[in-house]
Design a protein around this nucleic acid. Structure first.
Length: 477
RNA sequence: GCCAAGGUAGCUUAGAGGCGAAGCGGUGGACUGCAGAUCCAUUACACGGGAGUUCAAAUCUCUCCCUUGGCUCCA
């Protein structure tokens, strides 16, 4: 039984989709006006894992994400570079999708562009106007907040408290908190509407898109913590007013921020790290492990040092997996050490008490792993169980008390974990050098092996150290 | 001002009334020609301060202190 923390009720609730085992999941996508940064990556990796786990648990997941490809920031950026706004949006959308692919975020079923849903947006605005929830002024069409008394239920705010404004409200609005559904504009790009040319407001695209694909009610809506207010609040107001059905969303999920030295990452603070920059230094898996090591709702503090910690921790799992593979392919090691005592053809260790112990521990770990993930996707807790298991198993391996069958079962479990968490320790890339380079390095290593057999330590060490200078690390077994 | 999330060993994180956590780091050992990696063991008075409830509190209540975020740009 999966429990999900619902921002709306501020409590964990048992997850039950509206329709049997079909999960309709919507996550707010990016506004594509610049490169995506690692804060975005945190959120999308978190929801990637959530989608993976729901699938693992037998749900059929339809994961929908919007792409905000029209908005003030895009236009502003396009004006400054002299580019067409839509071209600019397409360019950064492509980069975003590439970043996600590199990060192993691959469970989104459909990306919906705002500009390809203008028709649906207009229909929804018309519905709101007809029902008296919206009104038209000289500057646009606005949602009338006084018609929706529940406004603020998600962020736990009262309308009367919303009196601090960074931007002075448009004077044509009835209430200062009313938000734009349609902005009347002349500068391109614009779309025709019953209210003249212009473009949609920010919030309406999501509800138009989700209504189109999911209907007025669906299961999970996710996004970063910063979207709770006003974005998600506005979505609720629009959709529930337009459809008359509540709730629009059954489970609201929000990811915590990625901070740098305790501060939110932002351009103005200059602590902005793009996904591309990150990946020049660390592998996608290291970053994913870093994300996994904190609960998705908690703030996560980024630093080089912590990524190093993640790297080291992850290596422990990698090495364990390698050990499993070695145990299953004992004949491979015959080149180096033909261990005569254990070279019996079957090399099978009979079922012993120790083996039963390991098998029991495996079952227990599996159970607890699911329990941790069921509990609002508690990945840190799940990881901790894996480390417990590795330590205990290593002890048995060291004593030689483990059967091939047990190793196989363990490996199978780790393959599952690899899938659920999206960590690729099953196919760990060795060296991402070019093909020819690989082979050249192999030749050098081969020669060095022979030198070591001759106990020519001086030359062996020199080779190792020269390779080290090229970031090729040799580790003798 | 209002709303929200936090303060857990040197660092990063789980936990959420009782059985003293996981990883990283440190230390010791095994292995090794050496180095590294790996493995094992071990280490660390752990719960922001103060009061209260309770047989029992990191965990519940109150209060105070501190940090961060949001309050129509935001993942």
């Amino acid at each position: 039984m999966i429990k999900i923390y619902n921002t709306l009720t501020r409590s964990k609730e048992t997850f039950k989709p509206m329709k049997e085992n079909l999960v309709k999941l919507f996550v707010c996508g990016p506004t594509v006006y610049d490169n995506s940064h690692i804060g975005h990556a945190r959120t999308y990796i978190s929801f990637d894992i959530i989608a993976r786990y729901l699938k693992y648990r037998g749900f059929s997941v339809f994961y929908l994400q919007n792409i905000t490809d029209i908005d003030d920031k895009i236009i502003k950026r396009a004006v400054s570079t002299g580019e067409d706004p839509i071209d600019l949006a397409r360019e950064f959308e492509a980069k975003y999708l590439q970043d996600m692919k590199t990060l192993g975020v691959e469970n989104v079923n459909f990306y919906a562009r705002a500009t390809e849903h203008i028709k649906e947006i207009i229909v929804q605005i018309e519905t709101l106007l007809e029902a008296g929830y919206a009104y038209e002024t000289d500057t646009g069409v606005y949602f009338d907040i006084s018609q929706y008394p529940d406004f603020g239920k998600l962020s736990n705010r009262k309308i009367e408290d919303l009196n601090v404004h960074r931007i002075s409200p448009d004077s044509s609005k009835r209430n200062p908190e009313d938000f734009a559904l349609w902005k009347k504009k002349d500068e391109t790009p614009t779309w025709d509407s019953p209210w003249g040319t212009g473009r949609p407001g920010w919030h309406i695209e999501d509800t138009a898109i989700t209504e189109e694909y999911f209907g007025p009610q669906y299961d999970i809506h996710g996004g970063g913590l910063d979207l709770i207010f006003p974005h998600h609040e506005a979505e609720i107001a629009q959709m529930e007013s337009a459809s008359g059905q509540k709730p629009m969303v059954r489970y609201w999920m929000h990811t915590g921020f990625l901070n740098v030295k305790g501060e939110k990452m932002s351009k103005s603070l200059g602590n902005f790290i793009t996904i591309k920059e990150l990946l020049t230094k660390y592998s996608p898996d290291v970053f994913r492990f870093f994300v996994l090591s904190t609960h998705y709702r908690s703030p996560i503090d980024f630093s080089q040092e912590i990524l190093e910690q993640s790297h080291n921790s992850l290596n422990r799992i990698y090495k364990f997996y390698e050990t499993l593979e070695e145990l299953l392919n004992v004949d491979d090691s015959s080149l180096d050490e033909p261990s005569p005592d254990e070279s019996s053809p079957h090399n099978s260790i009979p079922e012993t008490k120790e083996n039963q112990e390991i098998d029991r521990l495996l079952e227990e770990t599996k159970f607890k792993f699911l329990e941790a993930m069921d509990n609002d996707f508690n990945t840190p807790s799940a990881l901790s169980l894996i480390f417990d298991f590795i330590r205990a198993t290593n002890q048995n391996i060291r004593q030689g008390e483990i059967s091939q069958k047990s190793v196989q079962n363990i490996k199978f479990f780790f393959n599952e974990i690899s899938d659920i968490l999206g960590l690729n320790f099953t196919s760990q890339p060795k060296n991402s050098k070019g093909h020819l380079e690989d082979e050249l390095v192999d030749i050098i290593i081969d020669i060095r092996k022979k030198l070591r057999k001759k106990k020519d330590w001086e030359l062996s060490d020199a080779i190792r150290s020269r390779l080290d200078d090229l970031d090729i690390i040799l580790e003798d077994k």
